[in-house]
């Protein structure tokens, strides 16, 4: 069940990033800086092989099923820790600070991904939650409702 919840939230994170890539220059700038063909993988637990892999393409982002060599992998130490971050109970910066995950790959490249995730989170979560998990809440370019509608029905 926890895995499924993580996958659902990660899917919305991916869809939200796609939506905002077209509508928010902060996300577009960060995503455009990712290496084409490179990917960020969110692996929900060290002992399970479940991950969501977001790949940078020429036109934006796409989801891929497998982790390839050279991908940047954020591998949570336990499923419970993944659940906290994926459901917005904890920010990615907080999770990094508290050693919730193992990071395989360039730490520098993860910084841009983290900033993009924070902007996406700001569009997907209510402000009351964001205050507890982000150092500074980024302003929304479109409403939360519109972000979800676009994420569900197409960016």
């Amino acid at each position: 069940m926890k895995q499924l919840i993580c996958k659902v939230f990660a899917h919305f994170l991916y869809r939200g990033m796609k939506v905002l890539y077209k509508r928010d220059e902060r996300v577009r700038r960060e995503v455009d800086a990712f290496k084409e063909g490179g990917a960020f993988a969110l692996k929900f637990s060290m002992d399970r092989n479940t991950a969501v892999v977001i790949e940078k393409t020429a036109g934006g982002l796409k989801k891929r099923k497998v982790i390839k060599e050279g991908d940047i992998v954020i591998e949570f130490k336990t499923l419970d820790l993944a659940l906290k971050t994926m459901t917005g109970q904890k920010g990615l910066s907080q999770a990094y600070a508290q050693h919730d995950f193992v990071l395989k790959g360039s730490i520098n490249e993860v910084m841009g991904f983290t900033r993009a995730v924070e902007v996406v989170m700001a569009h997907l979560l209510p402000k009351s939650m964001l205050k507890n998990i982000l150092r500074e809440v980024p302003a929304r370019k479109i409403s939360m409702f519109k972000t979800y509608i676009l994420a569900i029905f197409g960016a």
Partner: peptide
């Protein structure tokens, strides 16, 4: 060394 870059990896 490039293969083990990262944090706690």
């Amino acid at each position: 060394l490039g293969k083990i870059e990262g944090a706690d990896a």
